[in-house]
Design a protein around this nucleic acid. Structure first.
Length: 108
DNA sequence: GATCTGACTCATG
DNA sequence: ACATGAGCCAGAT
């Protein structure tokens, strides 16, 4: 039984998020789809909450809503901090305060 | 081990 | 355009 066989859905989610290059963002549903389970989009978010953090190799700040919006109130210190991190990586934001998915959504 | 909950998303009112 | 409901299923209590 390899680690992947474990229930560790979270662990697999981390694996996907870890592959998101800097200056790119992915949606929860997109990551879930990469796991082969597009219905578990919620758990991808949960995994981020429980994630070891950027220092742990999980740039959860690169994971956003399908709309390009950020998690309100649950992002590390607030969506503003998340936005700051993304902008620092070169991600552009729309006047609406959302990520420009049209230009920065990550494609495997 | 049943119940509740939830960083989502889609459909409907 | 915004609010609410429902579906999804694994983790926490």
């Amino acid at each position: 039984m390899s680690v992947s066989t474990r229930t560790g859905f979270f662990q697999r989610a981390y694996g996907i998020v870890r592959q998101i290059p800097a200056g790119r963002v992915a949606t929860y549903g997109q990551i879930a789809a990469m796991l082969g389970e597009p219905r578990k989009a919620r758990f991808v978010g949960f995994a981020m909450h429980s994630s070891p953090g950027v220092a742990g190799g999980v740039p959860c700040h690169r994971v956003v809503f399908k709309d390009g919006a950020l998690a309100p109130g649950f992002a590390f210190g607030g969506p503003e901090a998340q936005r700051a991190l993304l902008e620092d990586e070169g991600v552009g934001f729309l006047p609406d305060g959302r990520v420009d998915m049209h230009a920065f959504q990550w494609e495997a």
